[in-house]
Design a protein around this nucleic acid. Structure first.
Length: 225
DNA sequence: TAGTGCCC
DNA sequence: GTAG
């Protein structure tokens, strides 16, 4: 933890990370059968909205994850237009697959928000993929929680505060876990340090060459009217 | 810097 | 090889 720890000394807790309000980890929310059903839905959706590799604004640097989306809106990014939500796949021009009922049910159970999620970003982490620390800024409905589901290999997730460079906490997320970024945590930095390759058998090599991890992230984008 | 690389 |  914080500061130098030497043998014989008890760590000073004065610099401990304080978990932001509204953060919830629900371990083992989905059992194996439910995890498999969600992966099957991702595979089906990817036939009409295939995984593609997004790029950073301005630099065009590719992200290490591949993406697709469920729902009426999908998060996309490219060199020319940057981070935004779009109704259609950037390469095929086809609408995203509909939001699965299982995910709508999850949202109603944990989001404490009076309207449906409009976007579910599907991130495929290869064994070497990472996600740098960032805050989700591209939604108008900033009061709605972000709800995410981990599937496949374990990942080291890191949560910080509302400013860069502050103290952080990390935790291992396993297949079937649900994370809710609500309240203050909705505006906190977070990212994925690393994947633990081969820690799950959920992702078949046929559909996900090399395996890895799928993360489903639901968000309300527009303010309900 | 929703990235990468290097260094302790 | 890891964690930060």
């Amino acid at each position: 933890m914080g500061g130098a720890t030497r043998p014989g000394y008890i760590a000073d807790m004065s610099d401990a990370f304080t978990m932001p309000g509204g953060f919830r980890l629900l371990p083992g929310y989905f059992d194996r059968a439910a995890q498999q059903a969600l992966i099957d839905l991702v595979v089906t959706a990817s036939r009409s909205a295939p995984f593609w590799r997004p790029a950073m604004p301005r630099t065009g640097q590719p992200l290490s994850v591949q993406m697709t989306n469920f729902g009426p809106l999908g998060w996309v990014t490219d060199k020319a237009k940057g981070y935004r939500y779009e109704a259609c796949h950037p390469e095929t021009g086809q609408p995203w697959a509909p939001m699965p009922d299982t995910l709508l049910t999850l949202w109603r159970e944990v989001s404490d928000y009076p309207a449906e999620p409009e976007a579910c970003l599907v991130n495929w982490y290869a064994p070497t993929s990472k996600m740098g620390m960032h805050i989700d800024w591209d939604e108008e409905a900033t009061d709605a929680a972000v709800v995410s589901v981990s599937l496949g290999d374990k990942a080291r997730f890191r949560l910080g505060g509302p400013k860069r460079g502050g103290k952080t906490a990390s935790m291992v997320l396993s297949s079937g876990d649900v994370v809710v970024l609500g309240g203050a945590s909705r505006r906190c930095y977070h990212g994925v340090d690393r994947i633990y390759p081969g820690s799950s058998t959920l992702l078949s090599d046929e559909h996900f060459p090399g395996g890895g991890r799928i993360n489903l992230t639901m968000r309300r984008v527009t303010i309900p009217g």
